[in-house]
Amino acid sequence: MIAFLRRRPGLLPLLLLAPAIAWLVAFYVYPAIQMLQASLWSGTLETGFVFSWANAATYPEALGRYSDQFSRSILYAAVSTVVCLALAFPLAYTIAYRAGRWRTILLFIVIAPFFTSFLLRVLAWKTVLGDDGFLLGPLKSIGVLPEEFRILATPIAVIFGISYNFFPFMVLPIYVSLEKIDRRLVEAAKDLYAGPVRAFQRITLPLALPGVFAGSLLVFIPAMGDFVNAELLGSVQTRLIGNVIQSRFLVNNDYPTAAALSFMLMAGILAAVFIYARVLGTDELESGIG
């Protein structure tokens, strides 16, 4: 085998990629095809489902019926991504350039929530944000907040939960990009009479774009499909498309509608990623990663 690869070195990259490609085909491509097929079914779980291309009307019907949940998911995911970026960039910058011997500890604190179940973290925030919890309870008791004030079961609670749970996914890629920046570039900019703000705008921020890009995707994509935060921290008025898909699949057994919504969600995310990449500029990103 080694002798064969020496004669054909071009096959080595394909051989190394083969396990990953097989994994993607088995657990992504094939399920996506199955989901597309299910979205074109008609019938019920009791009578059985029948595939027909004529059932493509399920897509516009599902989109029209659940357009509010789609719009709400996009809005909440976008706001959560912006919140994570606004909080993560200063933290990642501090860890990369100012933390010193505290760097390892701060990085551990960032990833520490991952040692706890996702569900337990959401339930913990449900307790913290409760109407009589230790956060709002004391403020209400001393009259700072009115008795009817609440955070739980509001859009703020859902966005807060999403931002908290996916925050490390924004911090770590930005930190890696900042850590890779050659400090001599910033020093050269200062030698050329660029102030700290100017050096940050022209050197640090452009070179950190790969981390911003990766972090935004890692937050936005799972936030679009999230349903746990909306289910536990929100209300009927804050239901997201993930809640609808979960309900259609597991409660109502409406597989065609659930599959159609899932497929549209996937297509929408891919379109958003493509547009985002075009806006940022893939050439710049690739050069920054390299």
Rank of each mutant, 00 (worst) to 15 (best):
I2C: 14
F4L: 15
G10T: 09
L12V: 13
L16I: 08
L17W: 09
P19H: 02
P19T: 03
P19W: 01
V25Q: 10
S39P: 08
L40I: 02
L40S: 01
S42P: 12
E46R: 15
T47P: 11
T47I: 13
N55I: 06
Y59L: 08
R65H: 06
S71H: 12
I74A: 04
L75A: 06
C84D: 04
F89G: 07
T94C: 14
I95R: 00
Y97G: 06
Y97V: 07
R98T: 12
A99D: 12
R103P: 14
R103M: 15
T104D: 13
T104G: 13
L107I: 02
I109T: 13
V110W: 00
A112V: 13
V122L: 08
T127K: 10
L129S: 05
L129K: 04
G130H: 09
G133L: 03
G133D: 05
G133A: 01
P138I: 00
G143V: 00
G143I: 00
E147G: 13
E148A: 11
F149S: 07
R150Q: 11
V158F: 03
I162D: 05
S163Y: 14
P168C: 09
F169M: 04
S177G: 06
S177R: 03
D191N: 10
Y193Q: 15
A194H: 02
G195R: 09
A199K: 04
L205K: 02
V212K: 07
S216N: 08
L217T: 14
V228N: 11
E231A: 15
L232K: 03
L232A: 10
T238L: 13
Q246H: 15
R248W: 05
F249K: 15
V251F: 14
Y255N: 03
T257A: 08
T257R: 10
M264D: 11
L265E: 07
G268K: 06
L280C: 03
G281V: 01
D283K: 14
